[in-house]
């Protein structure tokens, strides 16, 4: 095992690097799209159910299928990394629109009424009252999406772009366990590190809310 890592560490590091950006760029994209749509679902109440349902349908599409439907939608080649990035962004978006909407709904109440009474306009109220208060719940959603993305990236190895997934295809071809175990361990570690990083970020951003951290 140690010998395998010593002989191949530069490849392993390259795979790990690719894995990280393939998993995290979609998280950022998904958040950017989920925020306005989730907000819309709250402001226009009749949109809530259709948006939640759409998210549910998108989220249920198996990853390999979505990776390979993308070329038809985007006009990319089947081996383009863009297919993976956009697909994972779609999953993140599907998961987070509901979380954003539910988080914003959960903070409606005395604080928002107070802000309104103090003469906050809707946009300022959103930025300075609702979003900060909704942050713990939203970041819990981001944690789930990040961990899910990290475990899904390796499926991309089946179409040539899969970060640590390349270690799995290599292990399968050679009939070796070592690369597969290294890949699984690094993938799980990466998920744990990102999860903890988001928890720490949340502690910094919402020092008033230690209860919902868990």
């Amino acid at each position: 095992m140690i010998e395998y890592i010593q002989n191949n560490y530069s490849e392993i590091l390259t795979d790990l690097g690719q894995h990280i950006w393939l998993a995290l760029v979609p998280v950022v994209l998904g958040v950017i799209f989920a925020l306005p749509v989730g907000y819309l679902a709250v402001r226009r109440g009749w949109l809530y159910q259709p948006i939640v349902n759409l998210g549910g349908v998108l989220y249920s599409i198996p990853s390999l299928a979505l990776f390979l439907i993308m070329p038809a939608i985007l006009g990319t080649g089947t081996l383009s990394p863009l297919n993976i990035v956009v697909s994972l962004a779609v999953y993140t978006f599907a998961l987070l629109t509901r979380t954003v909407a539910d988080a914003l709904l959960s903070v409606q109440g005395q604080a928002t009424q107070a802000a309104e009474a103090m003469g906050f306009r809707p946009f300022r109220q959103l930025l300075q009252v609702e979003l900060p208060m909704a942050l713990p719940v939203m970041l819990a959603g981001v944690r789930v999406a990040t961990v899910a993305n990290i475990s899904l990236v390796s499926v991309g190895a089946l179409i040539g772009v899969g970060g640590l997934g390349a270690l799995f295809t290599r292990g399968l071809q050679l009939g070796f366990m070592e690369p597969i175990i290294v890949g699984i361990v690094l993938s799980v570690l990466l998920a744990a590190v990102c999860d903890i990083a988001i928890v720490l970020l949340q502690r910094r951003l919402t020092p008033w809310d230690r209860v919902a951290t868990r």
């Binding site: 789930v144 640590l164 997934g165 799995f168 399968l172 366990m177 699984i184 993938s187």
Partner: peptide, 18 residues
């Protein structure tokens, strides 16, 4: 939590090699 973080394709590959 661990189940969520486990890469599905990795587990599959491991079973096949074993």
């Amino acid at each position: 939590n661990a189940g969520r973080a486990l890469p599905t394709f990795g587990l599959l590959s491991l079973m096949v090699v074993l």
